[in-house]
């Protein structure tokens, strides 16, 4: 992204800065570049190490597996013969994260807009503080709240969906039990990632250059038109990366989902029925009793989750790259 200008070649300072000699400048620059590049390379090394260890440690499990790793929905790695696969995990993870994104992205952007450009100044700073704070509420607290307080209240929603939209298979519920479902987990995930999305989006909205906003308003734009013409184009990369952060949290959320889901290893599109399991919650639920093969199988599932996040980020990159011209102060 070409947002910063290269410093001018090697111009001699017109007025030498007191105490700074040319050599010191170069040494300082070299040291600083080295340090910052080192930090960046350390990240690459860490990521490589994570990948290497996940691959290495998943080999014994994958070798012992007698079923197809990608199409099997069951998870019995420690039995003999070992049978496990990620079909149910993939389905549950994508469904819960999908529901969460569907609910949280529009609402999160709405909150950010409200705080940044609709609320009064004093209210905005309080609300900004509250959203930042909520982004920090740990997932375990959402999990405890979700299972103790929210689940009972969502029964009505599940029933309503079944009664009025039951003709859509997604919402049909023949079992008549509405708790511990994928829908519930998705809703809690949405609530959890909401503050993350809105906190970052708000930060970006606030940075929209005053001149853009005033120019739009001076042209007679309504507030909404100003938002669409000035704020959104400027903030789009930030909004996307905020959403990606939210998606990352939704895909990998462990404890809350482990407490909320019924953990059944099948692919059931009736999202209001009890059931569903995700990669991350499966690790939390099976890690405690896993044997050698079991642990290896869990690492293999972690590897798949890793690859999924990789793919999601590649996709996001493509989207952002096309919008790159809006980033930075140009």
């Amino acid at each position: 992204m070409s947002t910063t200008l290269e410093p001018p070649g090697t111009p001699a300072p017109p007025v030498p800065h007191p105490g700074i000699k040319g050599a010191a400048v170069r040494r300082g620059d070299r040291l600083f570049v080295g340090l910052s590049r080192g930090a960046g390379v350390l990240i690459l090394v860490t990521m490589a190490a994570i990948a290497v260890f996940l691959i290495w440690k998943s080999i014994p499990g994958l070798q012992a597996n007698t079923a197809n790793f990608f199409t099997t929905a069951e998870w019995f790695p420690d039995q003999k013969p070992s049978v496990f696969g990620i079909a149910a995990l993939t389905f549950g993870t994508l469904m819960t994260a999908g529901i969460a994104m569907l609910l949280a992205v529009p609402v999160g952007v709405g909150i950010a807009l409200f705080i940044a450009h609709y609320a009064s100044r004093r209210l905005a700073s309080t609300l900004g503080f509250v959203t930042d704070l909520l982004a920090a509420v740990p997932s375990i607290i959402f999990g405890m709240w979700g299972i103790q307080y929210l689940t009972p209240h969502l029964v009505g929603l599940g029933q309503w969906l079944n009664d009025y939209l039951g003709f859509i298979p997604l919402f049909a519920n023949e079992a008549g039990i509405y708790s511990r479902s994928i829908l519930n987990a998705g809703i809690v995930l949405a609530i959890m990632i909401l503050p993350t999305i809105s906190a970052i989006t708000r930060e970006v909205f606030v940075q929209t250059p005053r001149a853009h906003i005033e120019a739009a308003l001076a042209l007679g734009a309504t507030r909404w038109e100003m938002v669409r013409m000035a704020i959104f184009p400027f903030s789009r990369p930030g909004m996307i990366s905020a959403s990606m952060l939210g998606l990352g949290r939704a895909l990998g959320e462990t404890i809350a989902v482990a407490l909320m889901l019924s953990a059944t290893y099948d692919i059931n599109i009736h999202i209001t029925q009890p059931g569903g399991i995700t990669f991350a919650s499966n690790i939390a639920l099976k890690w405690n009793e896993a044997g050698t093969i079991g642990l290896s199988a869990l690492v293999a599932s972690g590897l798949v989750l890793f690859v999924i996040t990789l793919a999601v980020n590649m996709a996001a990159r493509l989207v952002i790259a096309r919008r790159a011209e809006f980033s930075g102060a140009n």
Binding site: R180, S262, A263, P274, L285, K286
Partner: peptide, 18 residues
């Protein structure tokens, strides 16, 4: 018998407490 639940139906909850 196994440490993991295999039968169909019912609902899962985490832990004795769950």
């Amino acid at each position: 018998h196994a440490k993991d639940w295999k039968a169909p139906g019912g609902q899962g909850a985490k832990g004795n407490d769950g």
